[in-house]
Design a binder for these strands. Structure first.
Length: 581
RNA sequence: GCACCCAUAGCUCAGCUGGAUAGAGCGCUGCCCUCCGAAGGCAGAGGCCUCAGGUUCGAAUCCUGAUGGGUGCGCCA
């Protein structure tokens, strides 16, 4: 139930009535008519811009339309007052009953209150993490993982059929490097002295892989040339790394639906098929690229290559799909991968990349646009840098990986819930400061704590009610008479609850899960404010000594707050706290 | 040189398909516990939304340009 959508429907119905009465011309478009919360609470509960939007096409004065509209709206029992203000806004004041019903709805629907059918079951593929299988996940991946996962949950909550997907880059040269690095660890496990030169991965995480391999193979591969062991070792090593990565994801609570292997595209004709599709559309040609202006590489020389005419689909230059040695560029399998996604029948694709892949956005969009004939939108979300701090000092170290901080370093220290919430306290395209101490602080400054504390307070008051002999289970609260919830401080909280379904839709439409985290912070603030009002105004306390009925209606409101917090945290993948320790 | 992202209070940041007097936290000033958990709350001060044009009844929001910062730029993924 989205109250704002309901009232908008009422506004549109009233406009139609005006048309029938001849007060408005026929055929007006209502697309731009909005009903939203006013910025200033003094302006009422909701405001509509209908009169201003329609004034010009209708050839009427905004205030005249607004006044006519106001008369019709006031006839509805939900509307307590409608006032024309400013240039033609219509400010609506709603009956307390409306807000009481919001509480009742939240309780009866539980964490499904806020679910939307705006997605209409559309199939959406969210690809995220997709880290190279060459080592454990680091902090940058962590942000992408949390963002992608929360986005996927959000879209599902908003009525989409979501697939969570991880693209394994197991086909390129970096896998050879991995295999050689493991080979060194293998020799080392057999007692040899080895040196990790440039171009190998020196991280400790390969030691157990080398040891396991030594146990399995004995000295069979010692002093053998690459062509004896490289291919088998590639598979062995990537499997080991993917097992590592899956553990990392599990530690964070991320579960993928599909792991898609890049390697599966090679030698199976799938890359060729994707490029044949582009070729059939006249988008593949042999040509020579201009050198980039202003920054010509030292060794630049004109070369004829096989190019994808991505400029036809919004890119700045055409992109090579084949290297000069005839092999595929990294772009070719990516095209084939997205071709596969398109052919699996998704209605929309979302890729989550690190910000350092920003230069890759246009060509990928061009590819999907070309492959799908413009029918499948691809949105690419970039996650910005995470800067780590400890005691206010920049923090850089890793026990296991050498030069980067791993996902495990973070999760092991602060836990998955804190990690996830904090990663969503900035919008994805803004850099994020992560302070190991601050995120564990129990204070207003720490949004994780602040929201959890609000939920814990609700749970606490419910427990106390039981002690005081007041029944406060969900079934009882659902049936409670809420007519007593009329105080402005209480109505305020109910109004915030009414925004939840609307916020879900906005966040889902913009693919911005951080909005959920910010909303929860606001809801918690309103709840804490009400809680403290009880210090002075005893009639606002949730437990009213000796008055079960009044207590139950107030606790129904509190419980509704915790229901929405649980729903919101659920989308973020965070477990609500029952009590603070 | 080109592309993308960013620029909002002293600091860190929100700001909805364009809406009314631009918000929060921190910091600063002053308050609130014999009282449901003060791990919290209330109030005050603090802004030319980087700048200049444009579109609009209306712009922090959309467009163009400038300035400042970040990222990237043919056989690395």
């Amino acid at each position: 139930m989205n109250l704002f959508a309901n009232i908008r429907t009422l506004v549109l119905d009233s406009l139609e009535t005006l048309v029938r009465e001849g007060a408005l011309p026929e055929g007006l478009s209502y697309d731009n008519v909005t009903v939203e919360p006013p910025r200033d609470a003094a302006h009422g509960d909701m405001a509509t811009n209908a009169a201003m939007v329609l004034a010009k096409p209708a050839g009427l004065k905004p205030r005249d339309i607004a006044e006519a509209l106001a008369r019709h709206l006031e006839a509805d029992e939900r509307i307590e007052g409608a006032e024309v203000a400013g240039p033609g806004f219509l400010n609506l004041r709603l009956s307390p009953v409306v807000w009481q019903e919001v509480v009742a709805t939240a309780l009866s629907e539980g964490t499904a209150y806020g679910r939307s059918d705006m997605g209409q079951g559309k199939k959406v593929n969210v690809e995220y993490v997709s880290a190279n299988p060459t080592g454990p996940l680091h902090v940058g991946h962590t942000r992408g993982a949390v963002f992608g996962d929360a986005l996927a949950s959000l879209l599902a909550y908003a009525g989409h059929d979501v697939t969570r997907e991880y693209y394994i880059n197991d086909g390129g040269a970096q896998v050879d490097v991995l295999a050689r690095s493991v080979y060194l660890r293998y020799l080392e496990a057999l007692g040899q002295e080895v040196a990790f030169e440039d171009g190998t991965y020196p991280g400790d995480y390969l030691i157990p892989v080398g040891e396991a391999l030594a146990k399995e193979k004995g000295d069979a591969w010692v002093d053998q040339p690459e062509d004896v062991w490289l291919e088998e070792l590639r598979d062995y090593a990537t499997d080991a790394m993917m097992a590592l990565i899956r553990e990392d994801l599990a530690a964070l609570g991320v579960e993928m639906d599909v792991f898609f292997s890049e390697k599966s595209l090679y030698g199976t004709g799938r890359i060729e098929a994707a490029l044949a599709d582009l070729e059939a559309k006249g988008l593949i040609y042999e040509g020579v690229l201009e050198p980039p202006k202003g920054k010509t590489p030292e060794d630049w020389e004109p070369r004829e290559q096989t190019l994808f005419k991505s400029t036809e689909h919004g890119d700045d230059v055409d992109r090579p799909v084949k290297k000069s040695d005839g092999g595929w560029t990294y772009f070719a399998p990516d095209i084939a991968y997205h071709y596969d996604k398109v052919s699996r029948g998704f209605d929309a694709l979302i890729d989550v990349f690190g910000a350092d892949h920003g230069g890759y956005v246009k060509r990928m969009k061009a590819a999907v646009s070309a492959l799908s004939g413009g029918s499948v939108p691809l949105d690419i979300k970039l996650t910005q840098l995470v800067r780590l701090f400890k005691n206010g000092e920049p923090f850089k170290m890793s026990k296991r990986a050498g030069n980067f901080v791993t996902l495990r370093d973070v999760v092991d220290q602060v836990g998955p819930d804190v990690t996830r919430f904090v990663m969503l306290t900035r919008k994805n395209d803004a850099p994020l400061d992560f302070d190991f101490d601050k995120v564990l602080e129990q204070s207003r400054e720490n949004p994780v704590f602040y929201v959890q504390y609000a939920n814990a307070r609700v749970m606490s008051v419910l427990r106390k009610a039981a002690d005081a002999g007041i029944v406060a289970d969900d079934a009882t609260l659902r049936a409670a008479d809420l007519a007593g919830l009329t105080h402005e401080a209480e109505i305020n909280v109910a109004k915030k609850l009414a925004e939840w379904p609307r916020l879900v839709e906005i966040a889902a439409r913009t693919n911005e899960p951080h909005r959920v985290a910010f909303y929860l912070n606001e809801l918690a603030a309103d709840f804490h404010a009400l809680w403290n009002r009880g210090n002075d105004a005893t009639e606002l306390r949730f437990i009213q000594e000796g008055d079960s009925a009044a207590s139950q209606s107030k606790m129904a409101l509190a419980r509704a707050v915790s229901v929405v917090i649980s729903a919101g945290l659920g989308i973020l993948g965070v477990t609500p706290a029952q009590e603070m320790r």
